[in-house]
């Protein structure tokens, strides 16, 4: 009897893990789908001691690098419509990726807290309190700015306030 209930419990946990991971996969799948396309830059950041040290050197700001230690994952897709190419390959990729982002990413699970529309600019910023990992938050930026496309996903033990402080910290050191 006991063995059976343990088995059931085990399967239940396994199933839950698979379901939960499946949700996460919508994001991973999307980014990996476009990771090797011409004209698209894909960056997948997971902290490692070497990388964190590099970050610290680059920012030259203790507060900023401390905050970044709480970030567990960053995924980035950027693409540019190139000059003459706008009507051709890179242009099509650009639009495809953007439209796909709106369809495939789990936007329904996030809350949109900012949208900017201005001519050729359409930027959405979304926010989510992660259910799977307590206190972790997720941020999603889907931005089409003229000829530049950026899709960025961040997960970490950082909140809006913390992330908001970053540009001020960086700004002080003349990073931009």
């Amino acid at each position: 009897m006991k063995a059976k209930s343990i088995l059931i419990a085990f399967i239940a946990v396994l199933a839950t893990t698979i379901v939960l991971n499946a949700k996460d996969d919508r994001i991973t799948k999307f980014f990996e789908k476009y990771s090797n396309i011409e004209g698209v830059t894909y960056v997948n950041f997971t902290p490692s001691p070497a990388l964190m040290e590099g970050m610290e050197e680059k920012t030259q700001d203790k507060e900023a690098s401390d905050m970044m230690k709480n970030i567990s994952s960053v995924k980035i897709l950027t693409s540019k419509k190139r000059g003459e190419d706008k009507q051709n390959k890179s242009g099509k990729n650009f639009d495809n990726i953007y439209n796909d982002a709106l369809k495939s990413l789990p936007i329904d699970e996030f809350e949109k807290f900012l949208e900017v529309k201005e001519g050729k600019k359409d930027v959405k910023m979304l926010y989510k309190s992660s259910k799977e990992k307590a206190k972790a938050k997720e941020f999603l930026l889907i931005a089409k700015e003229g000829d530049d496309l950026s899709i960025i996903w961040v997960e970490g033990l950082v909140d809006l306030k913390d992330l908001g402080k970053l540009s001020k910290m960086m700004g002080n050191k003349g990073m931009k």
């Binding site: 960056v43 997948n44 990388l51 590099g54 970050m55 910023m125 931005a143 960025i152 809006l160 001020k168």
Partner: peptide, 17 residues
Amino acid sequence: TIEYTLDALTMMSDYIN
């Protein structure tokens, strides 16, 4: 990676502000 990540985070930060 570091450069792109920092840029990306800063961009998000700017929009939050």
